[in-house]
Each structure stands twice: as structure tokens, then as C-alpha cells.
Amino acid sequence: MKTKIFSLFLLCLMFQSYLFAQAKDMVLIEGSRYLPLYGRDSTVVEVKDFKMDVYPVTTKEYLKFVKAFPIWQKSNVIKLFADKSYLSNWKNNLELKDSTNTESPITYISWFAAKAYCECQDKRLPTIDEWEYVAMADETTKDARVKKSYNQQILAWYEAPRSNENSIGQTPKNAWGVFDLHGLVWEWTLDFNSVLITGESRKDVDKDSNLFCGSAAINATDLMNYAAFMRYAIRGSLKAKYSMKNLGFRCVQDIKK
């Protein structure tokens, strides 16, 4: 086990510049302080400047990754890092099903796999605060949460079937220039399990029983924002090895001084 993990680390170092010589488009996100709609005891959080991928990672891009890093292929992945659903929509290690849209977001991906993909590009997964900060923008306004239409559009997507099979970039970009934060898939975050289960304060005794109950929303700053609550609820229910058909990811990068 230790040998495999160390081998993965070495592979990332060796192929970091080679595999992703043509980096995916990123945009600069100017940080600020804001009040999340839910979580962290409703306190103001600060987001520093960072860069974010314009699009979620696609199936085609992830296929290149597993070709270069066989340890993340379907039959080779360490069971500690992915459950049985990992890449379950692929035929085998390097072959997709005939109906697969390679321009759609990669799904059936565990948190460990998503984290490794980003790190092999000298990037990382976004934190919840970073992701929510960018995702609260609509096409014209960087904080559109007060708009009724903003929440209606997101909730309409949650009811849409098989949106994860659509190509990236088909929905309008938001005010930051980022596509598909809403409308295609849920997305992994670096600290996905730190909000509903108040991991920072370790105050919860019964960690799982209230995840999808009304009492779990007691700290919401806007109880009418069900879209935001649903995102936090699904994150709180996940484990790092889980893989789901509507859960993908994108990467971010710290600003290097």
C-alpha cells in the first residue's frame, strides 16, 4: 500500500509539466469578504484571490489523465481511494461506452481521484467558501443571491434529468467568466464535509441524523435559499471514496507571489 501511494506521488512529479503542457483556461477570481447563505455559524468569511478553471473537467481530459497515471485506472485504483462505482460508466480502463459524450463533465469520480488530478497540474480543489463565492454570480451580477430568478434557475436544474451528459459550456458564463457551476453536475470541494457536520468546531454529537432534515438548516442566513441548502446537504452526506453519476469537479490555483 505504501509503495503504491509513493509511486503515485512520484508519477505526479514526473509528468506534471509533460501531461498538461496545454493548461486549461482559467480566470482570475478577485477575493473579498462575504456572508455564506449557510454554514460556519453564519459568520463572514474571507476569500483571497485565486484562479479557477473556466469549465469542469471533461471525460476526455480525465481519459488522458488515467492513460498517464495507470494507478487511477478503473481496475487499478486502490480501494481505499474509490468505491465500486468509480468509473462504472466506462467499458474498461481506457475505453468509454459508445454513447459517451467526451465533452461532458467527468463523473463517477471520488474525491481522492479529483484531488490527485488537480495536484498533478499544480492546482487543487476549491474550498467550499471559494466555490460558493464564485457560484453566487449570475451572468451580470457577482452576488445575485437576492434575485428570485437566480434561485429559480438553479432549482429548475436540480429537477432536470441527465444533465450530467450534456457538453460543457452550453449554459451562459457568469459574471466572473466561469461556466457550468450550475446546470450540469454537483462538484467536489476540498473541504466538502466541513459544514453540516461542523468539523471545524466539533460541536455535533449526532453527525448524520439531521443532514436532510429541516433542523439542519437552523444556521441558514436565508432559509428561503433551498438551492444553497441542498448543496450543503449533499456535501455533508458524502464520503471521500464515493463516486456518483452527477458529481464532477474542477480545479483552482493559488496566486503565486
Rank of each mutant, 00 (worst) to 15 (best):
P172M: 08
F6N: 15
F179N: 04
F81K: 03
D206G: 11
R250F: 03
Y133Q: 03
D204R: 12
T171H: 11
V54L: 08
G199H: 09
P172Q: 08
T43G: 13
K123L: 01
S209M: 00
A137V: 05
T100I: 07
F20G: 01
G169V: 07
D25C: 00
A240R: 00
Y38E: 14
N219V: 13
D41L: 15
S104G: 02
K203S: 15
T43F: 14
S163P: 08
Y38V: 13
I5S: 13
T58C: 01
S7Y: 13
F65T: 02
E119S: 05
K123D: 02
K64I: 09
L211A: 03
T189H: 04
A220Q: 06
Q121R: 07
V44S: 13
A227V: 02
I106H: 00
S215R: 09
S215V: 11
D254M: 11
E187H: 02
H182Y: 12
G199Y: 08
E130F: 03
P172W: 08
R124I: 05
V178L: 09
S167R: 03
K97F: 13
Q153P: 09
R235F: 10
L190R: 02
A135G: 07
L155Q: 10
N166E: 09
L80M: 10
T141S: 15
A160V: 09
E130A: 05
N101F: 04
K142S: 14
K203V: 12
S215A: 11
W186H: 01
A156H: 12
D25Y: 00
N76Y: 12
P172L: 09
P126Y: 02
G214F: 13
N92H: 10
L181N: 05
L184P: 01
Q170W: 04
S32F: 14
L11Y: 09
D41M: 14
L11A: 12
G169R: 06
F212L: 10
S17D: 11
T198V: 10
K123G: 01
T198Q: 14
V134M: 06
R162S: 12
V195W: 06
F65W: 06
Q22S: 00
V54W: 04
G199D: 09
G169S: 03
K203W: 12
L223V: 14
V252G: 01
T140L: 15
K51S: 08
N89H: 12
K148I: 15
C12E: 07
Y55L: 08
E103I: 06
T221P: 07
N174I: 00
V77L: 10
T59G: 00
A144Y: 04
